[in-house]
Nucleic acid binder design. Sequence first.
DNA 1: AATGGTTCGTTTTTT
DNA 2: ACGAACCATT
Length: 830
Amino acid sequence: MSEAPSPVILPPGSAPAGAGSDDLLAGLNPQQLDAVTYRGQALLIVAGAGSGKTSVLTRRIALLLRRREAWPSQILAITFTNKAAAEMRERVERLVGDAARGMWISTFHSACVRILRREAEQFGFTKSFTIYDSGDSRALIKRLVKDHEADAFGFTPAAVQSRISKLKNELQDAESYARQANMSDPAERVFVEVFADYQRQLQKANAFDFDDLIGQTVYLFRAFPQIADVYRRRFRHILVDEYQDTNAAQYALIHELTRPVQGGAPEPYASNGMMIFEPDPSTGSGTAEGAEPGAALTVVGDSDQSIYAFRGADIRNISEFERDFPSAKVVLLEQNYRSTQNILSAANAVISNNFDRKDKKLWSDKGAGHAIVGFTGYSQHDEAQFVADEVEALRRAGMPYGEMAVFYRTNSQSRALEEIFIRSAVPYKIMGGTKFYERAEIKDALAYLVAVANPADEMAVRRILNKPRRGIGDVTETAIARFAEEHGISFRDALAHPTQLGLGPKLQAAIAQLDAVLREATDIMLPASGEIAPPTAVAEGLTLLLQKSGYMDALRASRDPQDEARLENLDELIAVTRDFARNSPEGTIVDFLAEVALVADSDDLDDESGVVSLMTMHTAKGLEFDAVFVTGVEEDLIPHRISANEPGGPQEERRLFYVGITRARKRLHISLAMTRAQFGEVSVAMPSRFLQEIPSELIDWRQSPGDVNSRGGTQSRALNARRPSTGSGTGSGSFGGSGSDRFAPRELPRRDGLKPLSTAMDKFPNRVTAKVRDNGDLELNAGDRIRHDDFGEGKVEAITGEGAKRIAHVRFDAAGQKKLLVKIAPIEKI
DNA sequence: AATGGTTCGTTTTTT
DNA sequence: ACGAACCATT
């Protein structure tokens, strides 16, 4: 991102005064010390949650620098998110100061962009290639699916996209896939065609998609060993964070980089006039002998926190590290410095239900701490109210909002929380929700920039063609494309000949205007002949594009109230370009686009402190908070229902839950609701199987599932049962095997009256009371008057739905209109 | 080509 | 429930 392009080489002795290493080793436990100081070809640090992983990694790097075992330029540290990379850089800098400059600390993707940028011309790309995000890819694939009529075989763009992505993550291309696929199947043939065409289009557009960034770098290294050697010679220490989340392509990349240097051309290799590694002072003259051992590899990870298998992460990369690197040293960090013992005990208990895992038990010397607080709401709003109340209580007790976080499994769950938080005046922010860079107006603005930076990118040019409205539709677009093809020029260049397109004068003028604006912007951002654009070029160029194209005027003239927000977003984007000018004065428009493409919103560094953070459990990884609320702990949510069919799905869900739990330092709250509106329909929710894996003595139920309703056999089976009575019967002991149906309702003998033997309640021995609620077949009709425990008296206006899903629409005298599930609402007829 | 109405599917997670 | 995407109408 903003690393200095040419590493500073400090002469020996210029290290900060008193450059001893003691401060780097101070306060480490024996295992951590080992992890920081071990020297060898391969080191695996198995770092449990909260075990000081980042600290170990940064100190390890700092020690290498401090002791002059490595020059900054010889270090490559890889993380998964920009945020993690930024934090690591900052912490290393804090330890060694300027000596940190010149290190590569970046994500897999940005490291690969840097490499590809330098080598692009070796294999048919130019330096100004652009990066397609998943939205761009999908748009392209959508077009191709149509062109190839692949939809006739039931291919949706999304399905094709995910298949291609999976294949690329396994380093397959269309040809290699075709070789092993069943090509007598016409559907397969079409898929291969689309795949191959997609790749051709990318190349034609001088673009890489996210997966290509990794995959093509591997390809580059394999196809051009002498190029690979350059990087192998350069990077002597490679460190990879979150190793459990690497996929096959990333794994291959690491392997390529840590391979021994074969020898041969030892002279510094210059690419495009840019010298990309400086003579290496640590190996004497830096020229002489060619062969060198592979770089030292350090990987850090925790297989219990592997939660990205769904996108190709292969847990075996870490679990079989010792097989891959027979000389590897393994260090296990089990002491947790984050959470209290109660929280860790719960986490340990949950994760121990995953089989085929290496046993690892986190422990803490912080003492037991507070009990985990459990709550079962009647609805998701009820649950949210509990969270809001609890947040306020903690706040009053002195905990800052910024130290609290609420987690959920799916983004859609944030809605109920938001509503209640707003009503309760709890300040909050949603992390990683709607993405700034995915907003239409932002993508439009970026497409303008791409049209300038990489005119080969036809998709970008087509995108802006009629934005703002210029009266250019399908017909005109096709005419331009045809002209381009006939004259063997690009789509972009065709815009320079508006008079020859056979169009009316209005359209000609519109196209000429667009062409002129793009040119003018090009002059600013990519000045010809060696001139260097000023740092502010991107900001100026973007402003010009948005203004002279009429884009902003169109928004200003609009009376759609949303367009005001869109204008603000564009202003924000311009502010981003100004920041960019400040942070990377040498950065070009191409650099800016790459940075933007690789930045996720979860990387948002402006840690707006002082507000409660709401996020998914995935986003929560790597973070920690004093107080954590894990919400929606229900079957079909966590574990999510679609995980049930995927191999390893339920186990991954358990790890996700584990990640959520282990984010908490002092206070952990676990909550669920008995009913949840999903897909617009209210349904009965069941407590998650994971809940029951937590020893009951650790949880203080403010309101246990048994308190809210009993869900006697018939009703929940009607709604939720996957199979009729599995007869898992007694569901005896505490936490045993995984994934059984212990919460599945059992066939119960019909009991008289109101007290069926509860199912859930047996399983929650720490329930507070034995209140039970099941209205059975309560007859209720429009016009009846009822009394509700909370809302008081009211009149039934209508009954909808059937069976267990019967809903009463009630107008309460005091509380207004409500919809209630007849079966379980705390109501009685009067 | 733009607008409005309807259907549809969508709700795991991210570089 | 909600938004995107598709379709039919002007």
